[in-house]
Design a binder for these strands. Structure first.
Lengths: 350, 350
DNA sequence: CTGAAAGCGCTTACAG
DNA sequence: CTGAAAGCGCTTACAG
């Protein structure tokens, strides 16, 4: 190799724990202890080692540490990269990890189109790479599969309401309440014939919770007869066709509650193409309160689920698990409706 | 630990190379060779080892491999997660890696607001974790800093036009041509007073190239007098203020070329709020051809830079570098304009 | 073509 | 509190 070293460490490549030990005049084991903030080192020794580490610009190699201990790396598994909501979660995870030795490495689960099953490949790849723990986001996995995974390594699941004993922690937005808030808001604004655009297949407990919330609140608001759940895949083409059919029908609803902003934007698009005005002809509500909701061309009423807080809690819980907690914890964040023009007060038509 | 093993490997935890060797009746070194597809093993031995690996469900540990050889992990560094364009790049990287042993791990460079400098922290964390190579996307780093990084490990830079000898490969969209295409398209559709909304600080060579393309083509089209470049940070608030000022002025341009779709969506929002119609009052063009361009409420004319192809090439080049190539390669993808309503044919006003 | 041995850079018991 | 030795699971020269 013809590599030139910028700061030219004497031995050749990278500074190792051995060189730090030599420089500080202590044993390799002592340096290791300082590195891990382990119990049983004098302040004097710690200071000497710290000084040498700084002087030599020492950085431990995660893979070597992982051979016996931890890699100080946690895996983050996203279901998708297109939804800007995930950026909030990521920010939260990072801010929780900021003052720790942990670093998050992210992977996106490649779901094959409409099938949308979380493949084990990425998870196995992360385990092969010795992740100390995993945060899995919005997985389309059976609860049992998650429990099995949680038996193999520390696991926090974000966006899954089903528990499985102490196998893993969960962090969730209260999706049932979120859906209720949407219905309440619409009813308060004068809408009663409210349809819901949901996801197919609806094996995700998030979807299930939102559907339940929608149903229950519709009934409580006396709109039980109008309950109408349309389930569609995430494929844009399919969504468009579905929405178009819904809006063309004789019994066109007054409002559509879309399970995610991305679908709501599609609904706005179709309505616009059909020459309908929002919310006069059709009110639309989304979920996630994505940054695009604020744009005037969307002005989409949506449910904020505090993605950053969700990510923060998930990372915090995972580090606790890595540090030895073996009982499950479940964190739930309250949703909040953000009102915009797309579901503004209904004005009588004819 | 009270962990239960699902498939119950005899020894306790995970199957190691030693157990495979024992099962196959060969040496540990032989298994290692089969694992690495290394030169010098008989077909018979290879078959035996493969059979044992499959039977025992053996999976090598990346960190152990990394102690002497490779981790078969490459780092992907994104500047941001909010731009859906990056999802295309990610898909391309993954499809290039699909049939290899390599796995991409992704990190997002946390840029601090308007400052937008690629911090070394994430890069160092990736090096600590023994990434075999790095794909850095749209970095705001000096060319020299990239060259230094390339001297430390295999490096491909995506979205940076400046070369530095053989230190790293680059993969780019032809941004200068892309900007030219925008101007040509607008001029062909009847617009001549075309402003450009660019990024500040414009230390990215992508931005520089797009500005150059805009300037040159404006001059060649005889619109040199109308050249007007506005530079704004990525902060939404700032963009809104800038666009509003631009659109309120007495000399309002006929069209705005925005350096990225995200900014174009903001421009559409501001124009909409001001009661202007698009493209009658103001035409708008973006860059990236994000999925949101297709929505009727945006219908944004944009430049497609084939994100997936960019990602694919970057990963391919990186694996070549890891495999020993030491001379630089530079890959350039031609851009393509995608015409939509936001820059449709200009109709005379007064 | 095949294998025994050393070693990668750490952590982990275990002595002192 | 401190350190010498063994070992984590692989790969790498080097013999045979």
């Amino acid at each position: 190799m013809s590599e030139k070293e910028p700061t030219a460490p004497r031995s050749g490549e990278r500074i190792t724990i051995r060189e730090v030990a030599q420089d500080a005049g202590v044993s390799v084991a002592a340096v290791s202890k300082v590195l891990r903030d382990a119990y049983g080192v004098s302040d004097a020794l710690r200071a000497k080692v710290r000084a040498s580490m700084a002087k030599l610009n020492y950085r431990p190699r995660a893979s070597a540490r992982g051979m016996r201990g931890r890699t100080y790396t946690i895996g983050l598994i996203f279901p998708d990269l297109r939804n800007p909501f995930f950026a909030d979660i990521y920010a939260g995870v990072n801010s929780a990890l900021e003052r720790t030795q942990y670093q998050a490495m992210q992977g996106v689960n490649t779901t094959s189109g409409a099938l949308n099953i979380t493949s084990g490949a990425l998870i196995e790849a992360m385990i092969d790479r010795q992740m100390d723990g995993l945060v899995v986001i919005g997985p389309n996995m059976e609860t049992q599969a998650l429990a099995d995974l949680g038996a193999r390594l520390p696991l926090v699941v974000l966006g899954q309401h089903n528990h499985a004993g102490d196998a893993f922690d969960t962090v969730n937005n209260d999706d049932q309440l979120g859906a209720r808030l949407v219905v309440r808001h619409l009813v308060a604004n004068g809408y009663s014939n409210i349809a819901m655009l949901s996801l197919s297949p609806q094996n995700s407990s998030i979807i299930q919770q939102r559907e339940i919330g929608y149903r229950l609140e519709m009934m409580e608001q006396g709109c039980g007869d109008a309950i109408n759940i349309l389930r569609e895949t995430q494929v844009l083409r399919d969504v468009q066709v579905s929405v178009r059919r819904l809006l063309s029908g004789a019994d066109r609803p007054e409002a559509i509650f879309c399970w995610t902003d991305l679908m709501a934007f599609e609904a706005i698009s179709v309505a616009t193409e059909m020459g309908l005005s929002i919310p006069e002809d059709i009110a639309i509500v989304g979920y996630d309160n994505t940054m695009f909701c604020d744009l005037a061309q969307n002005s989409l009423t949506s449910v904020d689920q505090s993605g950053e807080l969700l990510g923060l809690q998930a990372a915090r819980l995972l580090v606790e698990r890595i540090d030895g907690r073996t009982t499950a914890e479940h964190f739930m964040v309250p949703p909040r409706i953000v009102a915009r023009a797309s579901a503004g007060t209904r004005t009588e038509q004819e």
